[in-house]
């Protein structure tokens, strides 16, 4: 067999997979987005821009998603970084594996059951009841954007912790000694050495969380009481309730475009921040 043929055979399964699982669905969605809804729901072939012209009807969902996804990512980052730092640098290596497992243990049960736990915790008999005991009355948590954010932080924490943990764990500890040796106090060593060198992990974590959050629908539905509406929820409704496949496809196309644009902006920003460093790549 010629090397060329071998190369092709090696790439064939992945190529076939990508073609059927990624390219074809995207083509279908794009084709549908120019179609019309059938009388009882579904799709009728057509060529119309009507679906795209109707996109402003979902403006609020895009607005919610584009607000809560970055804010959620940032909060997840702010909580995950110290945790990953502790695990990678401060924790006793003897316990490290156990602690890492503890980070993922909650994910052994279904998101549904965990969300119900949160519904109880944030509901009237949970935290608000405790706050009431301390004289803070009338605090509403469940079915608010705050509850959705809490759920997001909880659900996405490991996705952020692990890449950061890996980049911190790989960090050569002697670099910190070198920094200290050259006169830098620990906090400045963190800012000048640890933080920049863990940026690849931060970038990866943020990317993972942000992209998944853009498509999130379960957490807003469960903890937002149907009142905090993401693009994902709009899609679920369009395909599974009103069965408006063409409009659903147009919203999906718009979401993909928004995602591509925000990811591109993000990558540019990271690149600029990394000042062209080769060691700070995105993945």
């Amino acid at each position: 067999m010629s090397p060329k043929l071998i190369n092709r055979l090696l790439l064939a399964p992945a190529g076939l997979w990508l073609l059927t699982m990624l390219v074809l669905p995207i083509v279908v969605v794009v084709v549908f987005s120019f179609g019309e809804r059938a009388q009882a729901g579904g799709y009728v072939p057509a060529f119309t821009l009507e679906q795209y012209l109707n996109l402003p009807a979902r403006w609020k969902a895009f607005q919610n998603t584009l607000t809560l996804a970055p804010v959620g990512t940032l909060i997840v980052l702010l909580i995950a970084y110290p945790l990953a730092y502790y695990l990678a640098i401060k924790a006793n290596p003897k316990w490290r594996t156990l602690l890492l497992i503890l980070v993922i243990v909650p994910f052994w049960t279904s998101i549904l059951i965990r969300s119900y736990a949160w519904i109880f915790i944030l509901g009237g008999r949970g935290i608000p009841a405790i706050l009431e005991f301390f004289g803070l009355e009338g605090i509403r948590l469940i079915n608010t954007p705050f509850a959705v954010l809490a759920g997001i932080v909880y659900g996405y924490l490991p996705l952020m912790v692990f890449p950061i943990y890996v980049s911190l764990e790989r960090l050569d500890k002697r670099l910190l000694e070198a920094s200290a040796d050259l006169g830098s106090p620990p906090w400045r060593s963190f800012l000048q050495i640890t933080l920049p060198l863990s940026l690849p992990g931060v970038a990866t974590g943020c990317m993972l969380v942000f992209i998944l959050l853009m498509g999130e629908f379960l957490i807003p539905a469960m903890l937002g009481g149907g009142k905090v509406f993401f693009v994902g929820n709009a899609l679920v409704d369009l395909f599974l309730q009103s069965r408006n496949w063409p409009f659903g496809s147009a919203v999906a196309v718009a979401l993909v475009l928004v995602m591509l644009v925000s990811v591109t902006i993000y990558m540019r920003a990271i690149k600029r921040w990394g000042n062209g460093r080769d060691d700070v790549s995105l993945m």
């Binding site: 009807a57 969902a61 509406f229 929820n233 409704d237 069965r243």
Partner: peptide, 12 residues
């Protein structure tokens, strides 16, 4: 379809 869209506008 109009009722479905109305519901969607209400939810979002």
């Amino acid at each position: 379809p109009n009722r479905a869209e109305l519901m969607a506008r209400f939810k979002s």
